[in-house]
Nucleic acid binder design. Sequence first.
RNA 1: GCCCCCAUCGUCUAGCGGUCUAGGACACGGCCCUCUCAAGGCCGGGACACGGGUUCGAGUCCCGUUGGGGGCACCA
Length: 438
Amino acid sequence: MGIRVRFAPSPTGDLHIGSVRTALYNFLHARHEKGTFVLRIEDTDQKRNKEEALKGIVDGLQWCGLHWDEGPIFQSDRLDVYSRYAKKIEESGRAYWRDDPGKGRALVFRIDREKIAWDDLVHGPSARDISLDPDLVLVKSDSFPTYNFACVIDDHEMNISHVLRGDEHLANTPKQISLYRALGWEPPRFGHMPLIMDPDGEKLSKRKIEKYHGIGLPVIVEECRALGYLPEAIVNFVALLGWSPGGDLELMTLDEMIEKFTADRIGTTPARFLVDKLLWMNGIYIRKCPIDRLVELTRPYIESTYGPQPVEKLREAVRQQQERIKRLDELPALTKFAFAPKIEYDAKAVAKWLTADGGRAILGDLRAELSELRAFDKAAVESVLTRVMEKHKTKLGNVAQPLRVAVTGGTVSPPIHDTLAILGRETVLARIDEALKL
RNA sequence: GCCCCCAUCGUCUAGCGGUCUAGGACACGGCCCUCUCAAGGCCGGGACACGGGUUCGAGUCCCGUUGGGGGCACCA
C-alpha cells in the first residue's frame, strides 16, 4: 500500500509562497512514492475563516499544477468525529474540563510528562521534554476542536503516513505524539522543514506585504500570476528554497522533481527569498514557452492596455519580445511602439540620432527608398539599409538608430527589420514624416 | 525570560572524514557577439562565523561561544 500525505491549509488568508512550498514538497513526496496526496481544509477557527481564502488556495494549487487525489476535506464537516473522540479521551481519564471565566468551558488533555522522541525525516533523531509544558486544549469553548486535536484525529483517520510541515510546528509534534499514544495509535512520520525567510531574514509575514511589494517580491500566488510569472518558474524556484536534488541540477520540470525528490534531501537551513534568481528563472521559462501558449498568456496584458488586437500581430509582437522579457507584465511597455496609435519621442534620443550628425539626411534617404519598396519585407528593408549606409559611408548603426528613433520614439526595440515589419509600410512612413518635422 | 532549530561566496546551494588550493546557479565587474535592447559565449572577484576538542587527517564528527531564526494561544 502506498504512502499518504496531505496539505492542510487553513482558509484564513491568501496562499503564499511558504504554503506553496509545503504543498509542493508533500506533493512531490507523494508522487515520488506513488502515494496519495490529500487536500484538507483546517477551518476550525470560526472567527478567522474567510470565504475568499478557500478559492485562492484551490486556484493557486491548481495553477501551480499541484493536483490532489482526495479532498478537499473540510474539518468543519467532521465535528461529530472530533466530539466522538473527545468523549472517548475524556472517559479514559486523560482529559478534563476546565473553566475559564472569560472564555468558558474547554476540554483539556493531560500530556505525557516525559521526554518524547521521534525520528524526523529532515532533522533525524529528535526529542523534546514536554514534562513542564502546559496541558493541551482539545475542544474550545465554542465546541470546535483545536488545531492539535483535529489534526491528530484526521491524520490518523485518513491514514496519513508522512507529515511534512514547517519548523514552526516543532513544538507541537511531541504533544501530538503524546495524543497519538493516549489513543493507542501509531503516529505518522514527521518531517520539519526550515521556514522561508524574507530579505530581512525574518519569517514571511502578511504584515509586511506592502514592503515586499515595494521591492518587487511576490509572496502571494495570485500576485505571482498577476505580475507575469509562469507557474513552472514559481514551482521550480520554490522547490530549490530548501531542497536540492544534489549536484548542479537546478532547472527541472515537475516530473523531474518528482523523480528526484526525497525528504531526506530537504535542507535544515532557512532560506531567504530574494527575487533576482526567480526573475532569471522566469525569463528562462518564458523563452522555453511555446509561442502559442505564450500568446494566450500575454494577450490580457497587451489587450488590457491597447485594446483587442489581431492574433497575427499579437503573435509577432510576442515572438519579438520573448527573449527580452523576464515577466509578462513588461510587455505593454515594450510593445507600445507597435500597438499604441501614437508614440512619444524621447528628447535625448531625438537629439542624438535625428538632430545631430546628419541623422535627418539619412532618415530622408531612408524614407525615399522605403516608400518605393514594392515588397516591404525583411530582405527588401535590409537592402535599403545597406544602400543608405554605403551612400553615407557609415556604419549600420548610424542608419538603424535614426530609423529606430523615428518609428518607435526611442533607442530600444527589436531588430530594425522586425520593428518595421510589425508596423507596416503605412505607419513606418507616417512616423518618419512625423520625425522629420521634429 | 524559558524551550527549540539553524550556521559554506551578497543570495540559493553542492559537499554525507582524505578526491576541497571548496563545485554550480543568481547577482555583480570585464571581454566577445552586435543596428539598439536583450539573449548567448568566455573570463574575473567572492564563502567553510569563532574557539576548543576527536582523528594520521575536519567544511564534513563532538562541545562551547557568537550570530540568526522559530515557538511558548480555547490561531493554525
